[in-house]
Design a protein around this nucleic acid. Structure first.
Ligand SMILES: [Mn+2]
Ligand SMILES: [Mn+2]
Ligand SMILES: [Mn+2]
Ligand SMILES: [Mn+2]
Lengths: 221, 221
DNA sequence: ACAATTTGTTAGACTATTCTAACAAATAAT
DNA sequence: ATTATTTGTTAGAATAGTCTAACAAATTGT
């Protein structure tokens, strides 16, 4: 059984993988806030355990076993976040730190029950998909708001950044998942957008913000 | 901050303490399923950290700081057990193992919310008192069923043993906290008792069982 | 192509937690 | 009072996870 430390490495590897599934040791080290030699030695350990594929000076790749293990930890993380928000009244900006700990609990039944009590949710409070029990993740094919054009409507469906700071920014603007944004205009100079939503007539969103808002885009009619 | 391992030692020390607050290294080792040298070296470590009082060849004692730390971990354990039973539909025989892990989560808010959602319970699913936020524990002064006499009534209020096996035995006899037992007779030979409760007309409880049932005793009228 | 920078590796050390083997003190049994 | 048993201690070693210092390979920029 993977230790808590190993589980955190697997998760980081999963999240950092580029489209080809490759991860640099330095990115891994940075993500986990450890030194490169530390990351390096853990990668060797995971290799011995058959969870990653690795050769000296080449990028690391999770094996399919490693990928599944990682996805199942992420499943526990996201179920926990959703449970904390839906069933315990936490804000979406408060749950990540707790889930970071709860994800390591060994109890299939605990997570089964969370899942059941919530009616088998498919996404977490930040819109990220919850892997299924086999560790499979559905791809929602969302677009960044930056891709939307004036005249279109966009439903906020997920976030490319779930940091506390960004979530608090969204709270302050009353932006939540499900919010329908009407794109009023787009500033060619700095890529900022003016949008309207809910009871908010007019709000300017910087490029930085727009990039992090993942949406479903519709033609307004 | 105490590590998960240190927390488990503190809890064991708290639970094993005799009326004078003293614990033998050998009992500690046995409880935690480690060797005596291991327990010994952890005791030295806890001493350095000011959590126990200890001198070579003398029994260990928690300091008041150590006692409070221990009680607060037990608080998290018992709140968790109660939450799992009351809010998530677990049986009282399923929750200890999970709580053993959840008790180490660092999140005052998580346990606050559990407490709130349950309306500030004072005992766990096995009738053991939940320490308050200051680490104080109320003493319920319960008696063992063995002390009750024919003609009296007893309300099952806690258990002196919360092992899965015992809890499953109680499940099989439909015995729960709150069950009102009428003592019909007591066998002088083996200390077994014949009782009646709920829809159960007549049930024989061995001495072993009776000793582990903690009750409030009333004169029947 | 060469130099500079970034990335990755090795070696060696440290802490936390555990063990076994050997011994010492305390307690219990004759 | 001795002896035997139980309990506790020390010494020495192992593993997991981390670090810094030094070096090597790969990549980037002229
Ligand atoms: Mn998260
Ligand atoms: Mn984690
Ligand atoms: Mn318990
Ligand atoms: Mn525990």
């Amino acid at each position: 059984m993977a230790s808590q430390t190993e589980e955190n490495y697997l998760k980081a590897l999963f999240n950092l993988a580029n489209p080809e599934g490759e991860i640099n040791i330095s990115d891994l080290a940075q993500q986990l806030e450890v030194s490169m030699p530390t990351a390096n030695s853990m990668v060797k350990n995971l290799q011995k355990r058959g969870l990653v594929q690795y050769e000296k000076y080449k990028p690391v790749k999770l094996t399919s076993v490693g990928k599944k293990e990682a996805a199942l930890i992420i499943r526990k993380h996201r179920l926990t976040e959703m449970f904390l928000v839906n069933k315990m009244g936490f804000g979406w900006e408060e749950v990540h730190e707790i889930a970071e700990q709860v994800e390591h609990i060994h109890s299939p039944k605990l997570f089964e029950r969370m899942d059941e009590m919530m009616g088998f949710p498919t996404v977490d409070p930040h819109g990220s998909p919850i892997p299924d029990k086999q560790g499979r993740i559905q791809n929602l094919q969302l677009k960044s708001l930056i891709e939307a054009n004036p005249g279109q409507e966009a439903v906020l469906s997920a976030l490319a950044d779930s940091s506390t700071e960004f979530l608090q920014y969204l709270n302050s603007r009353d932006l939540k998942l499900g919010t329908e944004l009407k794109i009023l205009s787009k500033e060619p100079f700095d890529q900022s957008m003016i949008v309207s939503y809910g009871s908010v007539e007019k709000e300017t969103l910087s490029q930085k913000v727009c990039e992090k808002l993942l949406v479903k885009i519709f033609e307004a009619n």
